[in-house]
Amino acid sequence: ITGLLLALNLPSSAPWWMCAVGAFIAMLFGKHIFGGLGHNPFNPALIARVFLLLSFPTLMTTWHQGFNVDALSCATPLGMLKTEGVSAIQNLDNWRLFVGLPVNGVGGGSIGEISELAVLIGGLLLIALRIIPFFIPLIYIVTVFLFTWIFHVYNPSLYASPVFHMVTGGLFLGAFFMATDMVTTPITVKGKMIYALGCGLITSLIRLFGSYPEGVSFAILIMETLTPTIDKITKIKKFGA
């Protein structure tokens, strides 16, 4: 699973050796250094993604247009929003971005960020099979939608619409496949809800005010550091204790 998630967090143009380095970091520093399977406090694939992003920023931010791996490199919608502002993304077709098709030379991203539709279908399948709880991705996504909507209503010329934030970046990938990791999320239902809410808020804050265009990876890792505290606060007390 870690290998698949790591692949989804890499651009299609990533060289083989960078994939190998990422896998090594994920296994050693993301999992085995903490005691192996079931003991890791952080999602190993996210540890590897952040390491690669900091170590090889150019290779990690070289994208291709949508599903066309032979196309020229292009800017991601979130990247364009961060560098050029709302005016640069106003004419983008949200449906094409949602499906994974480039719009006017804009598109791409990591493999798991290209088509939100494909990720959504996979996430709904996991929920239908009862592999992941439905409320974690629901709370995560709704929080991002509401938070970005508030700022968009406040100043639409400065902040993009919440729909744009839904159809771009790694929100769905993070919400369905990363934030639902059974090992790194809180134990109680209440704790999981707080965790998902925190992921949504931090993701929104980074997207709106941070220097980096995407905040999903950082948001999930930050909330994973708080998982023990959330468990302590929300744990069910024994009767009579």
Rank of each mutant, 00 (worst) to 15 (best):
49 R>G: 08
62 T>K: 05
60 M>W: 05
27 M>Q: 15
139 I>K: 02
75 A>W: 09
19 C>D: 14
12 S>A: 14
135 F>S: 05
179 A>Y: 11
187 I>K: 13
217 S>Q: 07
59 L>D: 13
12 S>W: 14
156 P>F: 14
178 M>Q: 02
32 H>A: 14
152 H>T: 04
156 P>Y: 14
72 L>D: 08
87 S>E: 15
119 V>Q: 07
6 L>M: 09
126 L>Y: 01
205 L>D: 02
181 D>R: 01
130 R>M: 04
106 V>K: 12
183 V>W: 06
65 Q>A: 05
61 T>G: 12
205 L>H: 10
95 W>F: 14
3 G>N: 09
190 K>R: 12
221 L>I: 10
49 R>T: 01
114 I>L: 11
218 F>G: 15
156 P>C: 11
94 N>H: 07
225 T>Q: 09
7 A>Y: 15
8 L>N: 10
109 G>Q: 02
52 L>S: 08
21 V>W: 12
158 L>M: 14
18 M>R: 03
197 L>G: 04
228 P>T: 09
236 I>C: 10
216 V>M: 01
115 S>Y: 06
137 P>H: 09
82 K>H: 11
33 I>M: 05
70 D>E: 11
165 H>K: 01
203 T>K: 06
172 F>T: 12
235 K>I: 14
53 L>W: 06
106 V>Y: 11
111 I>F: 14
203 T>I: 02
74 C>E: 00
144 V>L: 15
175 A>D: 00
24 F>S: 14
57 P>E: 11
170 G>I: 10
2 T>A: 11
85 G>A: 12
46 L>Q: 03
127 I>M: 07
12 S>I: 13
174 G>W: 03
154 Y>K: 15
119 V>H: 08
114 I>D: 04
151 F>P: 08
121 I>Y: 06
181 D>P: 04
81 L>N: 03
175 A>M: 04
106 V>P: 05
214 E>S: 06
153 V>A: 08
102 P>T: 11
92 L>W: 02
199 C>I: 11
184 T>Q: 03
202 I>K: 00
87 S>N: 15
70 D>R: 04
26 A>R: 05
180 T>R: 07
64 H>A: 15
